[in-house]
């Protein structure tokens, strides 16, 4: 008798619990981030958490990766979110092609996906049966690097001798940033002495720049695809005693570079408002949940940061 009672109790609990929980439950948002080891994404994730805490109307589950290239973690995270039946997935893809099938799965399961930071590959989208103009929320990397490049070119004048330090070959934002720099080069008819990769790394950028200075001691400006590399470049110029003769611009607006800009060792960087980017993507996502039908590129702002802005 007692046994039966406990069984009945247990079964009724099992049935009732999810209902009870579901009633009070807020919408769940899954946030798939890139490497949280990167300062830029770390601040972005913190911004999203802050937004979630202030807003209070939804529950946020952020997932990061171990390294920039670890797409398996992202794919697993997507699959978990689909299995969990979250209400919205916000994704910064580590690989613009590799993540498309997961996006398709989520869309098929009726979960809206907001793509931010890096655009999904157009061809891959079409191949997987998704619209080519799939919604993307993010900054225009090409525009950002063009803006900061122009800022430097204005200062150096037409025909100046410059070097580009590229990010990881193969990374989409690296390609876009180089593209932006190249637009500046064409516009101002700059003399591009060299364009080499330092794989986003400070030490490698330092070694590279030191060696490039030997080959091209007459360089006037260096455009770096991110701020970590700009740190190494500035240090190389400093070690060569050429501070003040060579202008350096970067991308990402990290604290260490703000310091260098204030000290006048670096000219400018680009702020793409990282902390707000994920939050913006979530906001856009809620507009979809609210019934809006969105596609195409929802651009988020980019801005050149120079000494004048940091006073």
């Amino acid at each position: 008798m007692r046994k039966l009672l406990s069984v009945v109790l247990a079964v009724s609990l099992l049935i009732l619990l999810p209902c009870a929980a579901g009633a009070a439950e807020k919408p769940v948002v899954g946030l798939v981030m890139k490497s949280l080891a990167n300062e830029f994404f770390k601040t972005m994730e913190e911004g999203a958490r802050k937004y979630a805490a202030e807003d209070g109307t939804f529950e946020l589950i952020p997932v990061g990766m171990n390294s920039e290239t670890d797409i398996d973690t992202q794919i697993n995270a997507m699959e978990n979110f689909i299995a969990k039946k979250v209400d919205l997935i916000v994704l910064a893809p580590a690989d613009s092609v590799g993540l498309v099938p997961s996006v398709k799965k989520a869309v098929d399961a009726g979960i809206p996906v907001v793509n931010f930071d890096v655009t999904l590959d157009k061809k891959a989208l079409v191949d997987n049966g998704l619209p080519e103009n799939f919604l993307f929320v993010g900054p225009d990397n090409t525009l950002g690097s063009e803006l900061v490049g122009d800022f430097m070119a204005e200062k150096l004048g037409k025909g100046a001798k410059v070097i580009i330090i590229e990010g990881n070959p193969g990374a989409d934002n690296a390609k876009q940033r180089k593209e932006g720099f190249m637009k500046t080069v064409e516009k101002y008819e700059l003399d591009l002495l060299a364009s080499n990769t330092a794989h986003w790394e400070t030490e490698e950028a330092n070694t590279l720049m030191t060696n490039l200075l030997t080959k091209h001691p007459d360089v006037q400006g260096v455009m770096c695809a991110n701020d970590s590399m700009a740190l190494g470049v500035v240090k190389a110029i400093e070690a060569a005693g050429m501070l003040g003769k060579i202008e350096v611009v970067g991308f990402d607006n990290i604290g260490a570079c703000q310091q260098l800009i204030k000290e006048g060792k670096m000219l400018a960087t680009v702020d793409q408002f990282g902390p707000e980017m994920a939050a913006n993507a979530i906001k856009v996502g809620f507009r979809i949940l609210g019934g809006e039908k969105l596609d195409g590129w929802e651009k988020t702002p980019v801005k050149v940061v120079s000494a004048a802005d940091l006073k």
Binding site: N38, E39, E201, T202, E203, N206, S228, L231
Partner: peptide, 15 residues
């Protein structure tokens, strides 16, 4: 030596 050379300390260096 790294800090002397590059004047930074970072959790992502040395990969």
């Amino acid at each position: 030596l790294y800090m002397l050379r590059l004047n930074i300390a970072s959790p992502i260096l040395g990969v």
